[in-house]
Design a protein around this nucleic acid. Structure first.
Lengths: 139, 139
DNA sequence: ACATAAAACGACACATCTGTCGATTTATCG
DNA sequence: CGATAAATCGACAGATGTGTCGTTTTATGT
């Protein structure tokens, strides 16, 4: 299907519940973000490997943002969770699009990819958190 | 991954080898379009169900376009092969995007979906065939 | 009626994504 | 050192997309 993986959405929601200055448990974040706990643990491992969060084991451990939410973009999160091939080179699912020969939408998709990438790069976790708290205040 | 299924790409390539006035075998088209034959048979079934091609069994049978290539759009093909949910309602893989509450890219993705849909609707199979024959002439 | 030719069908295999579970490792604290 | 607490790891299970194979159905021509 034409979209990012479910895991990226989970990651964004979960990261929006994390802080820089406090370690939180996977289980607690999972509950707040409405994400399956055991699955979130796997996603947090990827985010940890990517340097987006810091995970610490043992008592007093947990997970926290490894940097300010202003510095974390949706693009960083998408890459960390879905890997380097998070966006298809070809709109039609081909691993390797052979230009105008095979793909009728090569130029179109190239421009689209840039647009989508630009959007994901321009949107930071901080903005997501602001939108979230704003929505909570309205209620 | 952020793209249509491989099957849609297969379908476009295969359809570009079909004619309105002549029945062709799955095996032959598969070879011309470089698509796994048994898999193409499944895709042709979907295209047949969608009324894009006409499949006839028995000797003298085969597959042909059910209408002019001018009338078949990439959108028709995508819908036929990937089903009604070919494009994700939410960029982040959620089945049901709950607006600004959860999804930070709701408005952005809504506009993108329209743009992509418009492109797929505007591009006909006839254009794909023209591009193909043009490329063959260059060689 | 019969042989033949084509798609249609069902079962299976493999990869990836999603999701769960129990055991293991690592760190802290008493 | 030992108990405890947290992430980490590995195995497994289900769904879907991709792909193969053998059999069945359907239509044609002799």
């Amino acid at each position: 299907m034409l979209c990012l993986s479910q895991g990226v959405g989970y990651a964004v929601r979960a990261l929006a519940c994390l802080k820089v200055d406090r370690f939180a448990f996977v289980a607690d974040i999972a509950e707040q973000a409405h994400v399956p706990p055991a699955y979130l643990a796997k996603i947090f491992k990827k985010l940890s490997d990517a340097g987006i969060i810091e995970s610490r084991r043992g008592p007093g451990g947990g997970n926290r943002l490894a940097m300010s939410s202003e510095e974390i973009t949706l693009l960083d999160i998408a890459k960390a969770v879905d890997g380097p091939d998070w966006i298809g080179e070809c709109l039609f699912g081909a691993r390797k699009c052979e230009g105008p020969d095979l793909c009728p939408s090569h130029v179109f998709w190239e421009i689209e990819c840039k647009r989508i990438t630009r959007h994901l790069k321009a949107t930071t976790l901080a903005e997501i958190i602001r939108m979230k708290t704003q929505n909570e205040l309205v209620r």
